[in-house]
């Protein structure tokens, strides 16, 4: 059985017919071919599939593991994926910081971590190291050992504060 749903993804509106049992992750990757969002477990345990979701009626977006959302549940949501983090070729300060600090290796965890880190900085522009570590607890990375990811988020937070000043 298919459902018709409305989604706004990275600022673009879509009307989609989605199978009832498909996840938001499948819709993003397979129907919209936004393959930057990764599938690492399909069980809500790795964070590779994280996207920002602003639910209908909510006033801000939150990071969500898209493998745990059935597509029909996302009807009316506004979604930002990794592809929507940069604007007009201008990378998000987090993306810049990930390159500068060497916070990506194989890169498979990177989209989910960046999206989650964006939500953290939107919520808490000046997070402590402990807050950063706790915010990342649902994002597994097997390559980097996390330290440079933490450094990168701190660097982006500093850059963000300078812009705000």
């Amino acid at each position: 059985m298919n459902h018709d749903i409305h989604l706004i993804v990275n600022g673009e509106a879509y009307l989609l017919s989605v199978p009832a049992h498909h996840t938001l992750l499948q819709v993003l990757r397979e129907q919209l071919v936004l393959t930057g969002t990764k599938n690492g477990c399909e069980a809500g345990e790795c964070g590779a599939c994280a996207v920002l979701v602003k639910w209908p009626g909510a006033d801000h977006a939150e990071p969500v593991n898209s493998c745990m959302v059935l597509a029909p549940e996302a009807d009316g949501a506004e979604i930002v994926t990794i592809e929507g983090l940069a604007h007009d070729e201008q990378l998000d300060p987090l993306q810049e910081a990930f390159i500068t600090t060497g916070a990506t290796q194989c890169g498979f965890c990177t989209p989910g971590i960046l999206v989650n880190a964006r939500a953290l900085l939107d919520r808490t522009p000046d997070p402590s190291e402990t807050e950063i570590r706790e915010a990342l607890v649902g994002n597994l990375c097997r390559c980097t050992g996390y330290v440079r990811i933490i450094d990168a988020i701190e660097m982006a937070a500093r850059a963000g504060r300078e812009v705000a000043r």
């Binding site: 990757r29 071919v33 936004l34 393959t35 930057g36 969002t37 990764k38 599938n39 994926t81 990794i82 592809e83 983090l85 940069a86 990378l91 993306q95 990930f98 390159i99 500068t100 060497g102 990506t104 890169g107 498979f108 990177t110 989209p111 960046l114």
Partner: peptide
């Protein structure tokens, strides 16, 4: 020097097998 494929990896543009169409 920075990772030469860094930009592709932080923007979601880097293509892995499961991303190929």
């Amino acid at each position: 020097p920075q990772r030469i494929e860094g930009r592709a990896k932080v923007t979601g543009a880097a293509t892995y097998v499961d991303d190929m169409q």
